[in-house]
Design a protein around this nucleic acid. Structure first.
Lengths: 123, 123
DNA sequence: CCGAATCCACCACGATACTG
DNA sequence: CAGTATCGTGGTGGATTCGG
């Protein structure tokens, strides 16, 4: 992500905002664990922090927090705090996450197609 | 990319190969400059190394080479060397790049939609 | 002209320990 | 339970230099 600024240079008068939005979106997705997190939310619905941490096996709470914050900032999930004791924070899917799912489905189809091309399965 | 291995853990019995393929694809795309490179190839067709370097303003030859190699390895472009003097290396789009284009179009639509949601444009 | 090799600097991840 | 704080480390991008 170090050179994202360098890509802010205008490119042939193209609307740079769009391309930037693409980059941001892609980088959000490819950040480690995010796919896991998003899939869990779409598959299992609202999930609490601890549960998330358990399901995304191996992630540290620090990184999980960072990811969740980023995803929240981009509207892919929402965060709800219940100020009880002990604290209870739940993360919810959003409409935008549903858009995401469609997109990921297409991505999956594509990568699957290529995978089969690369590794033909002789019957 | 440091934790990609950590994600190799099987996830609920899902075929991990597919998810891995997705990751590889996504990481390929999000690597800096790749979007630039791919767009240029799709828009302008076969392009030589030097031209590519000029169009992708700011990229170093080292990184450009690395990116091109990766993209070639994944079949997104092909490389043709003309052993003349001076040497002439041209990079060509591939069918797979065309698949890519469809996918990127959808991605663009999505990010554009979100962009408009985030920044409503009052007329 | 195309690209390989080297060196450096940065930063994101991971582990650990600690609060409200 | 749900994070924040701090430190150490490896992987990558960038600049530069050299070679065919």
């Amino acid at each position: 992500m170090s050179s994202i600024d360098a890509e802010h240079v205008d490119y042939d008068g193209e609307p740079e905002a769009e391309r930037c939005a693409m980059r941001v979106l892609l980088e959000l997705i490819t950040a480690p664990w995010t796919l896991h997190i998003l899939l869990i939310l779409t598959d299992e619905g609202p999930t609490r922090f601890g549960a998330l941490r358990r399901k995304v096996e191996g992630i540290s709470s620090r990184v999980l927090t960072v990811r969740l914050r980023s995803l929240e900032a981009r509207g892919l999930l929402s965060r709800s705090v219940s100020s009880s004791k002990p604290p209870e924070v739940t993360y919810y899917p959003t409409p935008r996450l549903h858009d995401m799912r469609v997109f990921m489905q297409q991505l999956r189809d594509l990568s699957l197609k290529w995978h089969h091309e690369d590794h033909p399965n002789p019957t």
